[in-house]
Every structure is written in structure tokens, then in C-alpha cells.
Design a binder for these strands. Structure first.
Length: 271
DNA sequence: AACGCGCCCTGTCCGC
DNA sequence: TGCGGACAGGGCGCGT
């Protein structure tokens, strides 16, 4: 579900709301959401702690608790919602954090593919090492991208979605970035010319930046930290548009399956 | 080692 | 109207 723009939107929202808040109590409704320890250990460890800052790494939300981190991955349908005491109950409650001043932080998740895990800074540094480059950072250059793609024969669309290489790009924005770059998603990564890698780099950044400005894409389940939908869905050029006319050439958008996931593209414009 | 696949889970939609 | 199958913004562990 949420890719980089959706997670970034939530992180910016929570960054304005949570720092300084004290976690008064924690209630785990679905223990399978907690990674690395029991629900009881998780609840006990977090009670009384202060949330100092909120950050993002890849598609993870990082809550800085001082000497440890609470890392939230939303999976496909996870939501992390800042609420007030009187707000209604979520329909799929997973974990409830009761904060000071009558506020709450609710995690809910219909499919429960999401995970919440506590990390020491050292343990998180280990995990962080396995994650690829942030596409909006200065390190994500055309040269970096081209050098890394040369080592792999997987299809470029599948390559872009691999979080060990580039983080934050999921199924929607991989298709959208390749459409903007006019690159066929089936092309082996190692077949890309430097100029093509450069176009992919630019289009990936552009589509992610734009989607952040629109507060993300709500396809079905995504909501921001206030429970509001993102507005980027109407800007999608190819994703979920099988059979509809390409905005550039009017030919019907194609849908294929790569690594078990749908890919959308225009056969005429992308080659 | 890199890559493909199945699986985790619930909900919705579409065809019969 | 009901029912089975396909599919849905992710990520992990397995086998080859």
C-alpha cells in the first residue's frame, strides 16, 4: 500500500503533532503485529516513554524515543492515526497508544501485513544497512543508478521495487516513473544506456515529489495521519488504467504481471 | 548470489 | 442472490 509519498505524508503530519507527547499506556489488540517480542513486553517497554521526533526511512515510520526507536511498517493496509479521546473506534484496531492530554495514536490494519518493532540504535543501524538509497537524497544520482543496474539482469520495474537497491518505490510509482521515462518495464536492468538511467532517475524523483505534494495516492485503503485520503490517484498516467487510452498516444494501456505484481505501461510510448 | 515464487490476511469485485 | 476466483500501495523466507 503506502509507498514513499504516503509514508512521508504521514511522517510530516505526525512530526507536527507527536514530539513531546508521553505514551501513557499501550494496548495491543492483535499480537501478530508486534515483531521481536511478546505483546506484553512491547506494552510494558513503551509505557511512560516520550516521543521525541518522527522520521522516515524507506517505507518505515520511525518514532524516536530517545535511546530506542519504534519502527512502524504499514504493509499493504496499515494506518497510523493521530486522534483525540472522543474520536470513534477504528474498524480494525491493531494497537492503541494512549498519549497525554487525551490524545491517542491508533494503528489499524485490515490485512495485518504491517509490523511494529522496537529497535536499539545499533540494531536499527544493522537493519538500515540492508536498505538501498533514498531516491530523494543527493546520493541517488544517474551515475549511481546506472552503475547498480549494470549488475542485474532482472526487469527494470522489478529492480526499482527492490528495497535493497532503491527504497520507497512500490508498485504504483514504479509503473508511473517508467512511463514518464519512456522505458519498457520489461527491459533487463543491465540493458539500460546511461542516458536512459538518467531519465529513470529524474522521473522517479519527479513523480515521488509530485505525489508528496498531493499527499499521496489513495487507491483503496490509504489514509494520512488525520484519516484523510491522498489526492494523487487522479494524476496517475498508467497505474490501474488497463484498456484506457494513453494520454500521449491514445493507445490502450497494457497490464502485465511481473514478479507476481501488476505492471501498467504503454507499449507504444515505452521501449 | 541472484532471482522467482508462495505466503501472510481481509475485503471487494466480477463472472457464472 | 450466491459463490468461487482473482486481485489489492509490502515484505519475508524458501528453493533453485
Amino acid at each position: 500500500m503506502p509507498e514513499l509519498p504516503e509514508v512521508e505524508t504521514i511522517v510530516r503530519d505526525l512530526g507536527a503533532l507527536l514530539p513531546g507527547a508521553v505514551v501513557e499506556s499501550v494496548h495491543v489488540i492483535h499480537p501478530d503485529l508486534i515483531e521481536g517480542e511478546t505483546a506484553e513486553e512491547f506494552e510494558r517497554a513503551l509505557e511512560g516513554r516520550t516521543i521525541h521526533a518522527v522520521a522516515r526511512r524507506a517505507k518505515n515510520i520511525l518514532l524516536d524515543l530517545g535511546d530506542e526507536l519504534l519502527v512502524v511498517n504499514l504493509g499493504m493496509t496499515g494506518r497510523l492515526l493521530a486522534r483525540s479521546a472522543g474520536d470513534e473506534e477504528p474498524s480494525h484496531p491493531g494497537v492503541r497508544f494512549t498519549l497525554g492530554n487525551g490524545r491517542r495514536l491508533d494503528y489499524h490494519d485490515i490485512r495485518r501485513f504491517g509490523r511494529l518493532q522496537r529497535f536499539t540504535p545499533a540494531a536499527w543501524a544493522d537493519r538500515d544497512r540492508d536498505l538501498g538509497v533514498e531516491p530523494l537524497s543527493d546520493e541517488f544520482t544517474a551515475a549511481h543508478l546506472h552503475e547498480r543496474t549494470r549488475a542485474s539482469r532482472v526487469a527494470i520495474k522489478v529492480w526499482l521495487m527492490d528495497q535493497r537497491r532503491v527504497v520507497g518505490v512500490g508498485n504504483i510509482y514504479a509503473s508511473e516513473a517508467l512511463f514518464r521515462a519512456r522505458i519498457d518495464p520489461r527491459r533487463p536492468a543491465k540493458s539500460l544506456e546511461p542516458e536512459e538511467s538518467s531519465r529513470i532517475r529524474d522521473s522517479t524523483r519527479a513523480v515521488l515529489d509530485e505525489a508528496i505534494r498531493f499527499r499521496g495516492t489513495t487507491f483503496l485503503d490509504y489514509r494520512d495521519a488525520r484519516g484523510e485520503r491522498g489526492d494523487f490517484a487522479r494524476r496517475l498516467a498508467v497505474y490501474d488504467r488497463e484498456g484506457l487510452p494513453c494520454a500521449t498516444c491514445r493507445a490502450p494501456i497494457q497490464r502485465i504481471v511481473q514478479a507476481g505484481r501488476s505492471t501498467f505501461f504503454c507499449e507504444g510510448c515505452q521501449n
